[in-house]
Each structure stands twice: as structure tokens, then as C-alpha cells.
Design a protein around this nucleic acid. Structure first.
Lengths: 215, 215
DNA sequence: GTCTATATCATGATAGAC
DNA sequence: GTCTATCATGATATAGAC
């Protein structure tokens, strides 16, 4: 039945998300995953074809809506600004929020997904590289253009680096949401994602707009 | 013989560094490693005891001198500055250089080590967590103090975040040195590590010293 | 110290009954 | 669609010869 099939599929995806997030692609076995899902070992191959394809689906089903959200928020901000170039803060907020907000989502997968996507982008799986590049390409192009408009004097190579630095900052913040409370020695509480986001935007706004030092 | 023993040990460490870096801890097998090293499978257990202990040694033998260098550079900069608090740039340079300079080292392991240590810090292996914490603790304390001196008005929680953001920026830059040339579409050449470092310092200096926005 | 040989177990994948 | 059973392979680790 389609209904039961969907239920099993969903349970497997959920368990896979958690275990891939915790142990990485090669560190999580299909046996662990199907056991935690309460499904049969053979279900993975039936529903997804292979472990790699399961991993791909775990990621893409969350990445796609997230990136659409990022593009939508940017478009909305631009409409609001009219002819003016967007303030840096506005671009960054549109870029960061759809990712970090998932740290508090009641929706499934929040923290797991953050850790997973951070690991994948900082340390890509070769078999997924092309598909991820295709998925992120419109986003990169679109935001590069927005940043370039707001920072007209910045040479392309510097903009490239500053966007990379911003990405690194964001990914690390996302990857470690799950243990910042512990390592901050009580300075920060895990439910204050807004506080993290505000500080992240402060930091990256300054970094992107920094003066350039002499070579 | 002690000499041959050392040679085998060294060959295994070198191969392990490359393969752990490329495929991660669980993605690299002892078979791969010993084969690439031209050593016997049993050599790993003889010399290191277990796969986990091999991994630990691969990391720590490079982390220890790197972190000593960071502490030394900071002390030297402080001596140079006398009574004055250090400029942000000087602290950052001392923090960043001993890591990123390894991207060009003729010495073995440069790029591999960068990728490996970045992955380990952004996504720690549980079995190594305590030992890494112990190894990095003096560094964190020392640099936190230096930053706090130079940024006297900054509340501790904000300093915590900004140091985390700086760490994330640095680790991502380190992790991807090996393919920035490719993904920059020709904007940047891999031999220009100085250029990367200068831009990284520009970015983080601005971020650490950024104005704080209202909550 | 280094090797061969092997023990023991986990892995991803699939064939075929239901 | 889901199950059991199994295959072929590869994993870490170790015992014991040399």
C-alpha cells in the first residue's frame, strides 16, 4: 500500500538523518538506521536503491526548501528597498536565518540537519559533490550579485574570500549549535538562537564591509 | 631494530594522515593505510595499539608543535608591545599563521593536516574529545585573555561568540585550501596563502571589533 | 619487529518467499 | 511492500612463526 510505504520511507529518512548527523556517512550503518526506524534492513534498498541515494535524499529534501526560502527572503528584501542597494545586514539576515532558524524548529530534524549540512558543505562527499553544486549554484550567483551591488568597490577576489569566510562562520555556528551551551560554560543558553543570529550578523557585516589592508 | 621500527612507524603515520584526511576516520581502513605505507596490516596494532590510537597520534604529533608556536608568537608580540594592549591584528596573526602556513609547508602533511584538524575541531570524534580539550585548553585561555585586554568593553558572552566565529572562519579556510583554487573560478591561486591569510585577518579583525547591535 | 594466517564480526546488497 | 536468509566482502584485531 502506498500509505504504509510512505510511512516506512519516512521513518527510515528520519532515523537516517539522526544517525548520519551523529556518526557521518561511513560511520552510520544501514543496520543501525533500519533498526532505529523499526523497519527491515531491505527497506533501504527497496525505497532508495542504495546507501548513497538514501544519504542524498536525507540532505536534499531539507536543502531544497531552505534554499528556496533564502531566495524568497532576498527577493522580498530587495522589493522593500526599491531602487536602493540592500544594506549588508539585510542580505546576511536572509542568508543566515533560513539555516539557523532550524535549530529551534519543532519540525523534525532541526539540530541534526544543521550538523549534517554543515559537515557536507565543509567536507563534501565526492559522490554528492555535483548534485550539491547544482543545488547551490543559483543561490551563490544570486547572493554574489547582491553583495556586489552593496559593496561596489570590492574586487571580485576579495568578495569571493569574504563570502567564503562568511560561509565558514555560519557553518561552524550551525554545526555546533548542539554543544555550544556546554562549551560556553554557561554563558549562552541553547534556546537563544536569536542571540546567536544577531551576533553572527554583527560579525559578518563588519567582516564583509571591512577595510582592505595593503598586500 | 629501532631504526627500522621508526621507519615503519613513520610510513604508517604518513599514509594514515593522508587517508584519514581524505576519507575521515571511519572512511579510511587500516588495510588501505598499511598498503599505502608498504607495511603489514599488523604493524598498526603493534606500533599504535588500535585504529583510534593511530588517529590520535596522527593528529597530536602536529597539533602540539602548532599550538606551541601559537603561544610563542603571542608572547613575542606582547613583549614587543610592552605595556600597551596588543592590536587585534597582531593577536589574530599569531593565532592564524601557525595553522595556515602549513598549507605551503614543504614539510610533510601540510594540506592533509589542515583538512584533518579542521574536521576534527568542527566535528569532534567522541573518543578524542577530552584529549583535544586538554590540548587546546591553555591556548583558549591565553587567547581569550589577550582578546579581552584589547576589547575591554566587550561582554564575555559576546567575546565567546566572536571567538567561535573566528574559529569557524579559520577552520573553513583551512579545510578547503585544497580546493579553493578550483571553486574560485580562477580568482585565486593555491600558492597565494599569504593573500588568504591577509584577507582572513582583515575579515576577523573587523568582526571581532564590530559594534554590537541592540538585542 | 615484522610477517602470515586467521579469528571474529559487521558491512552493503540481493534473491526469493509471502 | 515487507520479510527472512544469505552472499560476498571488508573490517579490526590477534596469535604465533620467524
Amino acid at each position: 500500500m502506498a500509505i504504509e510505504s510512505e510511512a516506512t520511507r519516512e521513518k527510515v529518512l528520519k532515523a537516517a538523518e539522526r544517525l548520519f548527523s551523529k556518526n557521518g556517512f561511513s560511520g552510520a550503518s544501514l543496520r543501525q538506521i533500519t533498526e532505529e526506524a523499526g523497519a527491515n534492513l531491505a527497506a533501504v534498498n527497496y525505497h532508495f536503491g542504495s546507501k548513497e541515494d538514501l544519504y542524498k535524499e536525507v540532505l536534499l529534501r531539507r536543502v531544497r526548501p531552505m534554499n528556496e526560502e533564502r531566495l524568497t527572503l532576498l527577493a522580498q528584501a530587495e522589493q522593500l528597498a526599491g531602487e536602493q542597494p540592500l544594506p549588508l545586514r539585510a542580505i546576511l539576515d536572509a542568508f543566515i536565518r533560513p539555516l539557523l532558524s532550524r535549530a529551534t524548529d519543532r519540525a523534525p530534524g532541526g539540530l541534526s540537519f544543521l550538523r549534517l549540512i554543515s559537515r557536507e558543505l565543509a567536507d563534501p562527499q565526492p559522490f554528492l559533490f555535483d548534485e550539491m553544486a547544482r543545488e547551490f549554484d543559483p543561490l551563490v550567483k544570486r547572493y554574489t550579485h547582491a553583495f556586489a551591488q552593496t559593496l561596489p568597490g570590492l574586487p571580485p577576489v576579495d568578495l569571493f574570500w569574504r563570502m567564503q569566510f562568511t560561509t565558514g562562520t555560519l557553518l561552524y555556528a550551525a554545526a555546533r549549535q548542539h554543544d555550544f551551551e556546554r562549551i560556553s560554560s554557561g554563558l549562552w543558553k541553547a534556546d537563544d538562537v536569536e542571540g546567536c543570529m544577531r551576533r553572527l550578523v554583527d560579525y559578518c557585516t563588519a567582516g564583509l564591509g571591512a577595510p582592505r589592508s595593503a598586500a
